[in-house]
Each structure stands twice: as structure tokens, then as C-alpha cells.
Amino acid sequence: MKISYILIILFLLCTVRAAGIVCPATPPYPPCCVSSEFWSGGWIYLVFISITLVILLLSVVYMLSKIFVKHEWEIWVKDEMYQILISVVIISTLIIVLSIICEVFTTLAGNDPFLIAHNYLNSLIWDKTLNMATNAFQYSVLCQLLAAFRLQIGPVSLGVGYNQQAGLRAVAVCFDFIYTFCAGISASLMVQDIGLSIIQAFAFRIMLPLGIIFRIFPFLRKAGAFLIALSLGLYIVYPLCFVMNKMIVDSVLPEIQLSLPPLETYVETFLTAIISPFMPIALMGLYTVMNQVAFLIPQALFLPTLNLVITFTFIKNAARVLSQNFGEGY
């Protein structure tokens, strides 16, 4: 009796709250809106029907346990009823606090976290890493051009010739490595950017409602808990990590000058190297590029790795918390 009152009240709260966070029928979708695809068939109604079905099943099992005098079935039914109550509490808490959490984090970030994350990644990819890769590639081409330059004294049939900058091929290999490294980093960051778009599109609109429905059924409880944890982690924690990265980068790291040098710079370097062959002109460009890559590594490699570590640690722990029986221990 007590349980049924609690269930009714919580469902009323859920329904009222859910109405406020359901996505509209057509885009643009506000942040943190939960799917409306199920709403018309009604994912809240699906949840209600699922709970009813499970309670019906448990009632049947309870009756059979009394008929056949099976105590273990009776205990199992009581456990499952308790689990249904826990599921309802989780669902209602999620729905009630979801929009509050999103609003709080949007206020903390100053804007939609996804927008900030996209801008940060785009700036990192297109203004920094790809520029650096292009810079390194151009220097490599310059070094190879210089290495192939041949100085001929006298006619070809009677003279002396030599490649005065042949050693620059080794420097070109260094630039090639930097180019490959930066191009790889860019690709990784692009994948993360695309991943963010995918998460924004389907985490709260498909994954979360599915997870909620799955958590109700005994044999799908862990899967449901995992889906709920995954959607929360990907939609809330992951973009916030990028917001934190942007704040760190803006306030702490120096602005890296990554504009591409004009064509005249390369021509001047080429001519200077021809005139003074043993001057280490190429080293200056190499050291500068290496220094810039070193500054890029915290923001392009270390911080994104940390984002993934934080997000997946959160998902693992949240899935364990959401699937536990609150008493059997961790």
C-alpha cells in the first residue's frame, strides 16, 4: 500500500517534470531535452506499462509461490519489488534533476557546453594542429629542394659539381615526422569533434529513454543502468571536460603564433642557404616548430586523454551505482 502511494506520487512528479524537458517535434532542440520520439507513443507511458507488466509478472510468481509453497520464489518477488521501487526513484530523480543539472552546468560554462566544446576543438584542429602540420610539410619541401640543389663550377663536361646542402635530407625527415605527428593529432581531434555531434544528437534522445526502460526489467537491469550512465557521462561530463580545457588553455598557456610564414620567407631562406651553405638555417625552423609542437601537446594530447579518462571512469562508476541493490555492497 505504502509502495503504491509512493509510486503514484513519483509518477505524477515524473510526468509533470518530463513535460518540461521533452524535445519539441522539430529542430532546433534545446540543450538537455529528452527524446520526444517515444513521447507520441509515449516513453513515459512505455515506462509505466513496463512497470505494470513487471508487477503483473511478479504477482503471478507470488501466487504460484503460495500455491506450490516455494519460499525462494517469494523472496525473489520481494527483492524484485524493492528493485522496482529503486528504479522508480532513480527515474524520477533523473527526470526531476536533469534539467536542473543542465541549467547549472550551462550557467557555469557561460554558454551551451557543446557549443564551447565544438569551438574549442575547431580552433585546435584548424588554427593550430593543421597549420603546424602544413608548416612542417612546407619546411620539409624546402629542405629537400635545398638538398637537391647542385652547384656546378665549370662546364658539365669539365668541371666540379656537388650538392652543397645534401645533409638537409636528414632535417627533412625530422620535419616529415612532425608533419605525420600533427596530422595524426588533427585526425584524433576531428574524431572527437564528430563524436561530440553524435552524442549531442542521440545521447538524451535515444540512449537515456532506452536505459530507463531497460532498468525496469530484471534481466535488463545492468544494461539499463549502463545505458543511463553512458548517456549522462557522454552528454554532461564529456562536454564539460572540454569547457574546463578551454578555460585552462585560455588562462594558462601562452598564445602560440601559428600563422603560416609568407612565401617570401621560404624564398629568402632558400637563397640564404645557397649563399652560406654551412649556416644552420634549417635548424632554426626545426627548433621553432618543435617548440610549438611541445606547447601543443598538453592541449592536443594530454587534456583530451584526461577527458576520456574522467568520462569513462564516471561511466563505470555511475553504471555500478545505478545497477546496485543498495545494500549488497560495491
Binding site: 663536361s157 666540379v160 659539381g161 645533409g167
Partner: peptide, 15 residues
Amino acid sequence: NLYLGALSTLKFSFF
């Protein structure tokens, strides 16, 4: 390396 590269590509042509 630059010196070695220049030296190894030094070519005397004659006829």
C-alpha cells in the same frame, strides 16, 4: 652532416 653530404656528392667531370 652538411659537410659529409657535400663531400659525398662531389663529382669531377672530365673528357
